[in-house]
Design a protein around this nucleic acid. Sequence first.
DNA 1: CTGAAAGCGCTAACAT
DNA 2: ATGTTAGCGCTTTCAG
Lengths: 344, 344
Amino acid sequence: MATIKDVSARAGVSIKTVSRVVNNSAEVSEATRSHVQQIIAELNYRPSALGKRLVSGRTNTVGVVIPHTAAYVFAHLYFNEVLRGIGEVLHQHGLDLLLHLGRSDMAYSDLYRQHRVDGLILLAIPTDDTLHRDLLGSEIPCVFTCRVVEDNNPTHWVDSDAATGIELVVDHLVSLGHRRIGMLAGPANLTLAREQVRGFRRALDRHELTLDPGWVETGDFSFDAGRRLSKTMLASRLRPTALVCGDDMTAVGAVRGADDIGLRVPADVSVTGFDDVILARYITPPLTTVRQNGYEKGRRAAEILVSVVLGSERGSPRQELLPTELVVRESTAAAMTDGALPIR
Amino acid sequence: MATIKDVSARAGVSIKTVSRVVNNSAEVSEATRSHVQQIIAELNYRPSALGKRLVSGRTNTVGVVIPHTAAYVFAHLYFNEVLRGIGEVLHQHGLDLLLHLGRSDMAYSDLYRQHRVDGLILLAIPTDDTLHRDLLGSEIPCVFTCRVVEDNNPTHWVDSDAATGIELVVDHLVSLGHRRIGMLAGPANLTLAREQVRGFRRALDRHELTLDPGWVETGDFSFDAGRRLSKTMLASRLRPTALVCGDDMTAVGAVRGADDIGLRVPADVSVTGFDDVILARYITPPLTTVRQNGYEKGRRAAEILVSVVLGSERGSPRQELLPTELVVRESTAAAMTDGALPIR
DNA sequence: CTGAAAGCGCTAACAT
DNA sequence: ATGTTAGCGCTTTCAG
């Protein structure tokens, strides 16, 4: 493939002049410019990004890290949305998107140190992940789309207000007359899941409801976990009349689990999800859930990173909590009166 | 950040020696090696990919092109699967994955000519897309996960055998007694959709069934299209007793459309999908559909590209047609006898 | 307006 | 076993 040298030789001008033409520098005569442009067209020359990157020290590439098994990423349609938001913003700014899926033993910071990216956006980092640690104190531009530790990370982050979202759901259930509410939570090593439980407890406190110790169970954000946990939780004599789930897949599983033991949703038990993935709208019954705007989350994260990378902005970390929204569909209904419940 | 020079200066050895240590070259004394390694650790040095790439002329990066609107990619969970397969294989070979989403005015070949990638994997290219054209004749390593033209592309491709998949569905419906079968097809500028229609007509011919001209309608692979088209198609007096849809979202929409006009699935009309996305299993009724293995498609495409890029293999294009599989769930049932149908 | 030379970080070829 | 030199493709001084 043609290089800048080939063009300069053929055009009978210096390398620098070709460079000037390519970069639309003003200081070239019109005659030279059009001549060089013609040679460029003839040779089908394209400036190599490699040389440019070496000189500038910038890769024009942003790394997106999703350190989870393929199955996990696949099951969580929410990543789709976030990626879409990120992709749009990076594209606007002419930046490439390097996708780093799955786990390996390489610290994420190495992507930067090896000059493969100018900065990082990190998705769904578990609290016990070790590969992100040296990012926290460093000067490496990075934005988390989650909080990795409960007490404030010293980094930029954009996160959904999951705690408040769960509070909205509990308020909704209480307004329907539910007093005994259980939770099928997500893995304890995700702050998302911890935040959800925090919101759950806070809302119960606010309504002065007691929480049976067996009514918060931990799963792994999957259909199977939802199905299994709902069956055990609903099997007890004085069972919850509503199940709050940490994500939509868990909720779909919980609906099935209820069905397995002969309980109908929402007539016998209400079930709620979290995320509002596309699935939530189309299953039976359509899911009452909390919508977190993954697309917007991706956009904001990318915008922050771009401003850091391109503007080399310093200053205190930008930290944004995005609102969540209750979406009421048909998986929730008024609680049965206590009289209708099985007698203890 | 530390460069190879800093290390060599501090260690009191030549640049080349550091290079040898970094690359585990054998011809270094054990003493020097461990000394240099210690300096590397002290300086937290990482070899820059930029220098390496410039020298080797290889970027160690593969571009994945999905030239569709965000909404489209988002609605088609199938892309998720393909990406996962691609990601796994590239990761195995130490290659980076550059995601090129959405459309722009840049020919995809420029990603290669600008030395941003060593090769390309292209997903869901419409037949009227112009940006991929110069790839077809060129020496640029690329693998399509679709056939861009019906008569054979002169490129590597991996595709699902959609025509046969649709034939399986029709066979299934015919075995249930259906004689009047309609199709809600996808956009005509996707070979996938064309292949599906081809399989559909072939199967009808095989069973000596006639096709009413109004019984093949074209949509855009969406819930809304499925809902709208099914309503019009099912409104006619002598309506089809089964609808074959080009993708699962269309099928979900078709179920809703049937419901809109008071027809139950599968009692009054059978509906089938295509893809077997995660949604298909969980909606009501669970969808009879054709499973195409997106994950495997991604893996195969990446494996072919890797063998071309790393082995610079020549020879005739590798072209693989992956089998599709009928998945029978609950959206199909025996056809009503003609007597039960509305009288013309 | 145009060009020559230096150098970005690294490796390959050729010494020593 | 180790070092020297040249050069990958480009931009950036600094001169003409």
